[in-house]
């Protein structure tokens, strides 16, 4: 695995923060906390993976968290009807894929701008979810379902393994498949991609289907953890996922970004949120700090680009290579 300079810095920041928290935050290294972090993180992580792929194509999916809650509710509903777990999950999958197809159709075939469309579809999915649950929650799942959210393989909770698997699969898809490569090129220059014969529409539809699928997996984990299905599960992840994706080095303009970066970004936000809670800080202050950190990172990124260019120019002048053409 090759880590870019930015990713190395990010990794260093993560390790540094981890160390800091291990030393100063009460109970940070306790089994309860570590386990809790490893169970929460996959939810944000999966949503972030889905969001990242969409952002790669210079789009955005504001509806992803409500696709998650709607498909989670579908699964919950199925379970309550007495369906076997795999069938209920399949119901959730169908719901998620329909939502993804909805988004993909309007964005890819009709050409609506992603931010505007997913604004509308976000309301639509939330409304549908509310319609089904009437604002309450659906609960009463069979014992076997709790296995997903509750069990572990050794010290590692199952959700975490799901996330690791999803991250690996996403990485392979993005780096080694035609679809993944097309997504990168599309995000950098949609015209050139189209003029090169890339089936832009098809690629985009798959992108939104992918994000819906990630939302589904997150939903399965969440409903299993909370033992119920409710509309607002995961709604706070929208902002955090965009923040994590951007922190991880993905550009909002599209065309660049890696799974590694996103994963590290998610990890950083997770340990931040856990540690700040352990410090006893009010959750509101935690929010302020998360926002502040995002801004600090963006500023630092900008400054470092500037410094890099400045050093580059200085280097050119010093070595006498400054020439009019290049």
């Amino acid at each position: 695995m090759r880590f870019s300079l930015y990713e190395k810095v990010l990794l260093a920041v993560f390790l540094g923060l981890f160390g800091l928290f291990a030393l100063t935050a009460p109970n940070f290294l306790s089994e309860t906390n570590l386990k809790s972090m490893m169970v929460q993180m996959p939810e944000l992580g999966l949503i972030s993976l889905g969001m990242m792929v969409v952002i790669l194509t210079s789009g955005i999916d504001l509806s992803i968290t409500y696709i998650s809650s709607l498909s989670g509710i579908a699964v919950a509903w199925g379970l309550v009807q007495g369906w076997p777990v795999p069938l209920a999950i399949a119901a959730g999958a169908c719901t998620a894929l329909l939502c993804g197809l909805f988004n993909g159709f309007f964005i890819a075939r009709i050409g609506v701008s992603p931010i505007v469309l997913t604004l509308g579809s976000m309301l639509l999915f939330e409304g549908l979810a509310l319609r089904v649950t009437k604002g309450g929650s659906i609960s009463g799942f069979p014992e076997s379902y709790y296995v997903i959210g509750g069990s572990s393989v050794g010290p590692i909770p199952l959700p975490m393994l799901f996330f690791i698997a999803a991250a690996i699969v996403t990485s392979v898809l993005l780096n080694r498949t035609v679809w993944g490569r097309s997504a990168y090129m599309l995000g950098s220059n949609p015209t050139a991609a189209l003029y090169s014969g890339i089936p832009v529409r098809r690629v985009l539809i798959y992108v939104y289907l992918f994000s819906a699928l990630m939302a589904l997996i997150a939903a399965v984990i969440m409903t299993s953890r909370y033992n119920s299905g409710k509309v607002d599960y995961g709604s706070s992840y929208l902002l955090l996922s965009v923040a994590a994706v951007v922190l991880g080095g993905t550009s909002v303009r599209g065309g660049s970004g890696t799974v590694k970066g996103t994963v590290i970004g998610v990890c950083i936000f997770q340990i931040l949120s856990s540690a700040l809670n352990l410090y006893g800080l009010s959750p509101h202050i935690v929010n302020v700090m998360m926002g502040g950190i995002l801004i600090v990172v963006l500023v630092a990124n900008y400054l470092s680009e500037h410094i890099k260019h400045a050093l580059h120019d200085i280097g050119r002048v010093l070595t006498g290579k400054a020439s009019a053409s290049s």
Partner: peptide, 17 residues
């Protein structure tokens, strides 16, 4: 603007089609 993806490598541009 229409023929190349400027931010990507020569290799990736050559293989695009």
């Amino acid at each position: 603007t229409q023929g190349l993806v400027l931010t990507q490598s020569i290799t990736r541009n050559l293989s695009l089609s």
